[in-house]
Design a protein around this nucleic acid. Structure first.
Lengths: 237, 237
DNA sequence: TCCATCTTTACGAAGATTTTATGAATTGCT
DNA sequence: AGCAATTCATAAAATCTTCGTAAAGATGGA
């Protein structure tokens, strides 16, 4: 069904661990890369996007905690933290730093593999093959060039505005809840910050609406969310 | 001050556990419901869609494993399994049955809370695990779009009105007690405020009834509650 | 440093919920 | 039947939320 194998980045400075992880994960059909510390991990991820990250907690250069935080700024990739440290407070800190799971060493390999499966299972519904062009009514969004045109007029958008309009354009005509938008654009920690939405929707409207005070494209569904109408000039689907 | 609180369903047959979970989770601002077995859990979820499920593994009626499988058929709601059983094979089975996390009893409460946060963080942007459309006689309720039509005429409803009509439409033809309605729409703390019902039923009738003074859809059952008749066009059940 | 962007805060208008008041209808009692 | 007590329906006032907007602070990169 998939053809492509899932990519897993293993971050650990102990060769024993990385060796056995590489073997086991590879035998399960995953594509593995190994980094010895957080710095290297981030470096690798610049041109190799993993579907899941398994990281140790204590490492030279950049530890697992810091790696989690850095990753969460930009990415929602699932993170499993591996560590010898079993104290509750350590676990809590890792989980709150952005980790999705915490496994204490020594661990059983079949449990780890099951947790890997569980975490991969809920990876976002194919939202970001990271390429191509979305055509929706008056809108054309070039995901590679980060360029948006409305009725063939080029619009200059900031990154967040771009993510917002992209999410809208992928779900035209549907009511999108505040929470869904916040989760999609700001990540799962900001699901209550509806002020962001008010501000950014306002700015977006100023840029794309002919008359921002009576919107044509981004409609408000009071108490629920927003709805994007692409207003197809001639056709409909 | 924050809008909606997250809903968590706790499924366990040991009162000690459910009691402490209810206390801790409630104090963190979550909305809690408790079921003593899998059957009851599924029953509750017909009317009350949780954002996360915490379940024991061994229970009467339906165990946690079976509950995971049943849930995964329709829903992506995050599931955390709690169990005294620490064998690796048991964990693997639970995780592969659809659980997202597995915590061994006894557990530290702050770790559990952190895992709850981590799992909630990941809820897929596409809300509405139990979304879809309810069709009942003259009524059609689109749970995703939050849209209601009566005889193909679109009706604009406020959130509370919408929840009310949704609950009605899920239980057509049945007498629904005041308490059931209040619990479903206003939550478990407002089971005495029957004034809310009078006001909101009145408003609903004004919006959906051809002649609000002699209701056709929302009927009053004096001293008991209300009954919703969808006015089946041809059949009856 | 400057600049673009993101995050916070504040406030008024529109709209929703909660509370209160009043009258009609129903029941139980004498 | 007449009368209190209770419940239901309705309207309207009081209270609270949300939305849109502007603008001030914070952040980070060239």
């Amino acid at each position: 069904m998939t053809g492509e194998h899932r990519h897993i980045l293993v971050v650990d400075d102990e060769p024993q661990i990385t060796r056995v992880l590489r073997t086991s994960l590879t035998s399960q059909g995953y594509d593995i890369r190994v980094a010895n510390d957080g710095e290297t991990a981030l470096e690798i991820m610049k041109d190799w996007v993993p579907d899941l990250v398994i990281t140790d907690l204590s490492m030279p250069q950049m530890d697992g905690l810091e790696l989690c935080r850095r990753l969460r700024v930009k990415s929602q990739v699932p993170i499993i933290v591996l560590s010898v440290r079993g104290e509750e407070q350590t676990k809590v800190r890792a989980l709150d730093a952005g980790a999705d799971d915490y496994v204490t060493k020594p661990f059983g390999m079949s449990e780890l593999l099951a947790r890997v499966r569980a975490n991969l299972r809920r990876i976002p519904p194919q939202d970001s093959p990271a390429g191509g062009v979305i055509d929706a009514g008056d809108f054309r969004i070039d995901l590679d060039a980060h360029a948006v045109t409305v009725c063939a007029r080029e619009i200059k958008l900031t990154p967040k505005e771009f993510e917002l309009i992209t999410y809208f354009a992928r779900h035209p005509g549907k009511v999108i809840t505040h929470r869904a938008l916040l989760t999609a654009v700001w990540g799962g920690n900001s699901t209550e910050q509806t002020e962001y939405l008010r501000v950014f929707i306002g700015q977006l409207r100023k840029k794309i609406e002919p008359d921002p005070s009576s919107p044509r494209y981004i409609l408000t569904d009071p108490w629920v969310g927003y709805r994007f109408e692409a207003h197809p000039t001639s056709s409909q689907d």
